[in-house]
Write a protein that binds this DNA or RNA. Structure first.
Lengths: 135, 135
DNA sequence: GCGAGTTTGACAATCGTTCTCAACCGCGGT
DNA sequence: ACCGCGGTTGAGAACGATTGTCAAACTCGC
C-alpha cells in the first residue's frame, strides 16, 4: 500500500465530480441506474463523465454509502442508504421502497453457509409486494 | 394474434435443439450461464446456436421449468428447478450449489411485509460464498 | 408429398459496464 | 505561492452478455 494514513483509508479526494454525484444521489430516494444518475447530474448543470459516475458509485457502494442492486434486467441500480446492512421491501407497482433489517436473517445465512463449509459470504435478499396505496 | 388454437397455447414444437437444451440441463445441478450451457451442448456432440439456447431457456423459464437468477455480475444463470420453494447457496468460484430451506426466513419476510401493509409477497434470497473446495 | 406457420442460425446490433492512458488536479512539503 | 507526486478524470475504444434480423430449414396436419 502507498497509504501513509494510519487508518489505512485509501485517501478519497473530495473532487467536484464526487460532490456532483453525491448531490445527485441526495436528489432522489428510489433506485436509479448509472445512466439516469448521469443525466441527473447534467441537468444540475454539472458535467461528469459516465465512467466517473460508475467509478464513484462503485466506490460509494464499497464504502457502504450507497446500496446497489440489480433490477430484473440485470442492470445495476443505486440509491443512497443508511449505513447499516439491510434489505428492501419494494412495491412492484409503484416502486416505493422500505428498508428493513433482519438480524435473524443475517445470522441464518452465515450459519447455513458455515454449516456447508462456505466462506467469504454475501447474500442478496429483496422482498417484492404490493404496497398499501397500490392495492 | 395469429393463433387459431382454441387452447391458445403457443404451440411449442419438440425440436432437436430444444431436446439438446433439455438434455444439457439434465446434466448438471448447479447454476450455469447460457454460454456454459451452450458449450455443454457442443461437448455432447450437438450443435445449437447460442441465440437458440437463449430463446429456449427463456421459454423454459417462462414455463417455470427452469430457475433463472443473476449472479453478482448481473449475468443470467439457469438450472432446472425442483418444485419446492427454496433458496441457493452458490459458490462464486465454481458454481457449486446447495439448495437450502429456511422456514424462518419465509416467516420473517411475510411478517415484515404485512407489518408494512404490503401484500401479494414474493422474495428473492441467494447466498454467495466460496465453497470448501475452492478455498 | 405439400403448404403454412415455426424455429433456427450466423451475424449484426444493442446496451450496460469497464478499460486505457494522457491530461488534470488536490494536497502536502518547501 | 510554487512544486511535484500520486490519485482522478474523460473521451472513446473495448468488452461481454443478450437480443434482433431474416432467409433457409424444419414440423405438423392434411
Amino acid at each position: 500500500m502507498t497509504s501513509t494514513d494510519p487508518t489505512s483509508r485509501p485517501s478519497v479526494r473530495p473532487t467536484r465530480q464526487r460532490r456532483a454525484v453525491a448531490a445527485a444521489l441526495a436528489g432522489f430516494d428510489d433506485f436509479r441506474s448509472a445512466q439516469e444518475i448521469h443525466d441527473l447530474i447534467s441537468q444540475q448543470g454539472e458535467s461528469v463523465g459516465l465512467a466517473t459516475v460508475y467509478r464513484t458509485l462503485a466506490t460509494l457502494a464499497d464504502a457502504g454509502e450507497v446500496d446497489m442492486l440489480r433490477n430484473e434486467d440485470g442492470e445495476a441500480i443505486w440509491r443512497s442508504c443508511s449505513d447499516t446492512h439491510h434489505h428492501h421491501l419494494v412495491c412492484r407497482t409503484c416502486g416505493a421502497t422500505v428498508e428493513v433489517e433482519g438480524p435473524a436473517v443475517e445470522r441464518w445465512t452465515s450459519a447455513i453457509a458455515s454449516e456447508h463449509g462456505y466462506g467469504d459470504i454475501s447474500h442478496t435478499l429483496e422482498i417484492f409486494g404490493t404496497c398499501p396505496a397500490c392495492r
